[in-house]
Design a protein around this nucleic acid. Structure first.
Length: 527
RNA sequence: GCCAGGGUAGCUCAGCGGUAGAGCAGGGGACUCAUAAGCCCUUGGUCGGGAGUUCGAUUCUCCCCCCUGGCACCA
């Protein structure tokens, strides 16, 4: 039972419909998962939903539904998104599942027993209308409360807290000793910056059940439910526990689960990468490591933080209609066009800007004119001049192909998906240039040049075959379609990287008919 | 306010001591296998402002201006 490469997305909070940001994070994670599979690793990729909490409770009530029904209905929408995005996830976690409650209870019980949790009254100003405590920051400069809060009353409430401050020095040391723990580096610096300058406050981990019923009760104090942290973050170990991972079961004192999911048991924990958005970095780079440390569990190896998307230089906003609907883009342009644009346009880290013009420009220039046209002209010429029969191998472009494979592999290992696509397109450009330099359409007119034409055609279709393999993690469907046109069946297993070796196409092999991969589209405003 | 990172061709960015580069966009050309795609050539910048160090600064130092991100419950 070898340790699998375990990668997660953040779980999404189900108080609305999915948008570009959600879709982006999932695509990034999917590509990394597929890349590791391609390069020979056993991978476990999980995404899911965070379904508890006040907003869900309120949204359900507003629709006259009980929360579980509300969550079940929304979950269908999110499962559909995962399918539409072509995700290769191995599990899908929902925090309302029984398997999750068991693990949350186990962690909380362990921390309670070890004295890491304590209860304490909190007194503050409470908005009855909004059902939330207010702070001095919510107060108007003149000391009054904004009318939007309605009636504001002083309220005392007992809650449970998690001792964090005593782990602060340990965490700083851990981050310093593990430079790749928080990526990219600018995020690491930010986390170190505030960890060094501010003393961590203990974390309030509960809400009275009387005020928030939609949650997991504290195992040692059922009049409270656990509040977000131990509920949402714990999902990552829930999945491992549910698949029978002893690295989680033993420290938490959990029995091996009876579920079929745990047969055979998998070794998942610790996670290799948590992919998250920059907005939740403190939870993943500060709270989560401390929670795990206190519970005696190993830490994830990397918190990989991506940026946010804007549209036309403006913040995405439902109220102003400045949104990108990933489902609509996929419907109109195809899944791989969507995946390509978000991966190629934005490196993992900085914020990005979606423009319809940019999308169409990359679609036409890079997918249609670059990759698609290369395949089309290569397959077309082989059909036209050699009845689709592959000639004897020739290795004129082998060094270029192997450079592309080498660069792509290296960049993928660094999670530089954007850089890897650039490296792959270097080969696309090289092969297109090769056509101009060798002019096979002229060679075809002179029977004395037949041997030379054979060489050129082989180099072209073989380059296309290697491109299909390199693209498999990024554009799985396109990869299959290229192989299809080359008359090659889809690989039987995901560990395809050995197929990047030059010379895979055999003499005498018959390719299929050419068909445009990405039909060119006229530039016009997107629907 | 504090911390960090930036301000270089129309756009996105690389360069970081020896008087500027790429991709895209714009302009021109030869070709024709191809999704009128691809290929070749090309216009275009007092490198945010000022001072200093230096034989010499886009590159180093200082000051100023502007932008972005972070500063503890938004992917």
């Amino acid at each position: 039972m070898g340790k699998r490469f375990y990668i997660t997305t953040a779980i999404d909070y189900t108080n609305g419909a999915p948008h570009l940001g959600h879709a982006y994070e999932k695509v990034v994670t999917d590509v990394i998962a597929r890349a590791h599979r391609a390069m020979g690793e056993e991978v476990f990729f999980v995404t899911g939903l965070d379904e508890h909490g006040q907003k869900v409770q309120q949204a359900a009530a507003a629709e006259g539904k009980d929360p579980m029904t509300y969550c079940d209905e929304l979950a269908l929408q999110w499962l559909a998104l995962a399918k539409d995005l072509g995700l290769s996830n191995d599990d899908f976690i929902r925090t309302t599942e029984a398997r999750h409650k068991a693990v949350v209870h186990a962690i909380l019980s362990k921390l309670h027993a070890s004295g890491d949790l304590y209860s304490q009254p909190y007194q503050g100003w409470y908005s009855v209308k909004e059902e939330t405590f207010l702070t001095e920051k919510d107060r108007n400069p003149n000391g009054s409360w904004d009318p939007k809060w309605g009636q504001v009353i002083p309220l005392t409430e007992e809650n449970w807290y998690f001792r964090m401050a005593r782990h602060q020095d340990w965490l700083v040391a851990h981050i310093e000793a593990n430079p790749s723990f928080i990526a990219p580096a600018c995020r690491r610096n930010e986390v170190l910056g505030f960890l060094r300058s501010e003393k961590l406050a203990d974390l309030c981990i509960s809400r009275p059940a009387s005020r928030l019923s939609w949650g997991i009760p504290l195992p040692f104090a059922p009049d409270w439910v656990t509040y977000v942290w131990f509920d949402a973050l714990t999902n990552y170990v829930t999945v491992a526990a549910d698949h029978g991972d002893p690295a989680v079961l033993h420290p938490l004192g959990l029995p091996a689960p009876a579920s079929p999911m745990a047969q055979p048991p998998l070794a998942l924990w610790p996670a290799d990468i948590h992919v998250i958005g920059k907005d939740i970095i403190k939870f993943h780079a500060v709270y989560w490591p401390i929670m795990l440390h206190a519970a005696g569990l190993p830490l994830p190896l990397q918190i990989l933080t991506h940026g946010w998307w804007q549209k036309d230089g403006q913040k995405l906003s439902k109220s102003t209609g400045n949104v990108v609907d990933p489902i609509a883009v996929i419907r109109d342009w195809g899944l791989d066009a969507f995946r390509y644009y978000v991966l190629r346009e934005l490196a993992i880290g900085p914020d990005g800007n979606w423009t319809d013009e940019g999308f169409q420009s990359r679609y036409n220039a890079e997918l249609a004119n670059g990759l698609g046209n290369l395949l089309n002209r290569a397959v077309n010429m082989l059909n036209k001049y050699r009845d689709g029969i592959v000639p004897a191998p020739s290795d004129e472009l082998a060094p270029d192909a192997s450079r592309a494979v080498e660069n792509t592999s290296q960049l993928l290992r660094q999670n530089d998906l954007q850089g890897a696509l650039v490296a792959i397109w270097d080969l696309v450009s090289r092969a297109n240039l090769y056509v101009e330099q060798t002019q096979p359409f002229k060679l075809a007119k002179d029977s004395a040049q037949a041997p030379r034409l054979d060489q050129v055609l082989y180099n072209l279709v073989e380059s296309c075959r290697i491109l299909a393999i390199l693209l498999a993690p990024f554009l799985p469907d396109t990869s299959r379609r290229i192989l299809g046109q080359l008359g090659i069946p889809a690989p039987a297993h995901p560990h395809v990287w050995p197929l990047t070796a030059w010379g895979g196409l055999q003499r005498g092999h018959k390719v299929a008919a050419p068909q445009p991969l990405f039909p060119r589209k006229d530039l016009k405003p997107m629907a």
